[in-house]
Structures are given as C-alpha cells and as structure tokens.
Amino acid sequence: MKNNDFKDIVFNRHSIKSFHKDVKISHDEILEMIEEATKAPSSVNMQPWRFVVVESEEGKEKLRPLIRFNTNQNDTSSAMIIIFGDMKCYKNADKIYSKAVENGFMPETVKKELMDLFMPAYKNAPKEKMNDIVKIDSSLSAMQLMLIARSHGYDTNPIGGFEEDQIAEAFGLDPKRYVPVIIIAIGKADYTPFESVRLDVEDITFFK
C-alpha cells in the first residue's frame, strides 16, 4: 500500500547508507517509480534524464570500483539507479511534440513554432550550457524519484561521489553524449536514521 501522506514523505525522508540485502524490487515497480519520476519538469519538455538500473551482482561489481566512498550502499541496496543527462536530448523533440499533438495537448501549429524556436538553440548551444541544462533537469527527476520511492515504502541515498569520467562507458553509453548526474541507491533501511539539521530560513532567504 502506497504512502500518500505528503508531510511524512517529504519531512521524514533521510539519506540511508545501509539497506536490507534481502529486499528486492521488481522491474515493474522500478519502472513504475521511474515513470512517476519523469513527471518532473524539464526545459521545453526535452526530458533529458536517462536511467541505468544496476541491480545484478555483475552490474554492482562493475560499479563498485567507480564509487569508492559509497560501496556499502552499492553492496546492500536493492538497486543503484544511475541518472545521466542526454546532451542530445533534442533528438527526441519531434517524438515528444508529435505525441502532444496526438493527445490533443497542442495544435500542430504550436508544435512547429516550438520546434522552430527551440531546436536551433539546443542544437547550437555551447557544451557548457547544455551540460547545465541536462544536469538541472535530471536533478529535478532525481529528487522526485527519491520522494516517490518513499511513497512506495523504500529508502534512498543520493550519491554524487563517483568516477564521472568512467561511469558512462562502463555501462555501454557514449561518454560524450551522456553526462552522469547522480546515483540513487534504493532499498529498505536496515537502521533508524539520525535526524539532521538545516540552516535557519532567515539566514538563507533574501527579500528584495
């Protein structure tokens, strides 16, 4: 049974470093959670996030040396979900906008206007700009995935410490096209996490 308590999902989420090893998550449920996570917003709806779910012993052995400071999460989690940003996400633009037209979400004329307006900018964007776009968008899906995982009864740990220059190629992706953003360890916590503190909102907010 899913947890629909918004406050519990958001305010009782914790980063978990150790999981019950015997907990497995079905492919159907993982796909369901990822599908829900992709409801996150993205720039001009280009949806640049790509997910590699590492769950097999072979996959985790391949990942292990690439996350030297986070091996316990790798060894105990149900899965390690690597989120990449697709630097050529604009190649799906026609597919995305055509589907929107088919579903009655926009007329063909708006599709053409959007394609004419945004696609040249995306195709000609400097590498640094595209890198920022896909990382921001993919991070939004990552946060949403962690909250959705909690609603499904699972715990997560976002991991940013890994060998960024090796991880795409290790899992058969073109490293020039797919930028590693974050890894989400998912499973069932095998301990009660400590509470953590946050800076006072008055110290980090500025009204002008």
Rank of each mutant, 00 (worst) to 15 (best):
N3R: 06
N4F: 05
K7V: 12
I9M: 08
I9Y: 00
R13I: 10
F19D: 05
D28T: 10
E29D: 10
L31A: 07
E32G: 09
M33I: 07
A37C: 04
T38Q: 07
P41M: 14
S42E: 03
V44K: 08
M46K: 08
M46R: 08
P48R: 12
P48W: 11
P48E: 10
W49Y: 14
V54I: 13
V54F: 01
E55A: 09
K60C: 04
P65G: 05
L66M: 12
L66G: 08
I67H: 02
N70A: 13
N70T: 11
T71A: 08
Q73S: 04
N74P: 08
A79Y: 12
M80C: 15
G85F: 02
C89V: 03
Y90Q: 10
Y90V: 05
K95S: 02
K95F: 03
I96C: 01
S98I: 02
K99P: 06
P107I: 05
E108K: 09
E108G: 08
K111C: 07
M115R: 04
M115Q: 13
D116I: 14
F118L: 12
M119S: 10
P120H: 05
A121N: 15
A125Y: 10
K127R: 15
E128V: 15
K129G: 06
D132T: 15
L140V: 08
L140I: 14
L145H: 03
M146S: 09
S151Q: 01
S151G: 02
S151F: 11
S151C: 04
S151V: 13
G153D: 00
G153K: 00
G160V: 02
G161P: 11
F162R: 03
E163R: 07
E164K: 13
E164R: 13
E169A: 08
F171Q: 04
Y178A: 01
V179S: 15
V179M: 14
P180E: 07
V181I: 11
V181Y: 00
I184Y: 06
I184T: 04
I184V: 14
P193R: 06
S196M: 11
R198K: 10
L199E: 15
V201F: 10
E202C: 03
I204R: 03
F206L: 10
F207K: 08
K208V: 03
